[in-house]
Amino acid sequence: MSESALDRTARALDLVPYLLEHQGISIPELAAVFGTSEKQINDDLILIHMCGLPGYTPLELIEMYYEDGYVTVSDPQSLKKPRNMNRAEMTSLLVSLDLLKSTRSDAISDEIEGLKLKLKGALAIENPFVVINNSKGSQFIEDIESAIAHGKALKITYLSGSKDESTERSILPLELYQENEFAYVSAWCQSSEADRTFRLDRIANLEVVKNGTITKKFTNNSLKDELASIELNVSKSARTFIEDNRGVIADVVEGGDFRVRLHPIDSDWLSRTILGYGSEIEVVEPRELSDDIKARAKAIRALYPKP
């Protein structure tokens, strides 16, 4: 629990200029911004209150008021401006900007480059990080973001990746995210009355529904044909299976091979995917999954009669 005097000093030096620009902020807010407890912020404020310049008469002390949990600084003495950033802070911000840029269009990348130059003016550092994103981007990102921000519904034509079909759907987009090389939108899908995730590069067409909104229904029933307690033996040569499907993997135990347990999941998708790895992935359980995969393999094998 005991925090070093140095950590507290650093926080106190940052608190005063922050308060100066956020007059009347509440203690809980401060605690959240500084990632510490309300009690700690209270203790810090009491301490800061007693600090000041040589002489240490009321005129030379840092002057602040805290009433009913709201804080105001009236005289910060020599702590008017925030401390300069350190190397770690600067590096994290530059990497964040590179990441943002990698998901965005050209117009904003110029703006971000300009911003990086401004920041580097405050502290020139060698940045040990490089961000590269080969995502193809999507022409629909801005429409989806605006729909999320304003609670608007969208009509999409979607080429399913798990069912091999193309469908028209009305969706209420909820979250947009980038994972591996792809961008996804998770949404309430009115057509299937369930939460669904769509990969942006598989959206063939998208229209904003004018004046149309969809209300999400809250349901608990899981709609997929799901299998529980799935255990696989994945050979090291098939480790891309693990890396590409982190979202469905519950845990991985490493031995000679990987022993992988999955979350409950759509069995059709799983059979199709595991089969693609041939003998590199072995189903430990359940039995019906391994039977299904073998049956599929035989059916495909029958397309290629032996000469």
Partner: peptide, 13 residues
């Protein structure tokens, strides 16, 4: 570190 960097920038007024 990203957050403490932002906090400092937010103290610039």
């Amino acid at each position: 570190t990203a957050h403490s960097g932002i906090r400092k920038l937010q103290s610039l007024g």
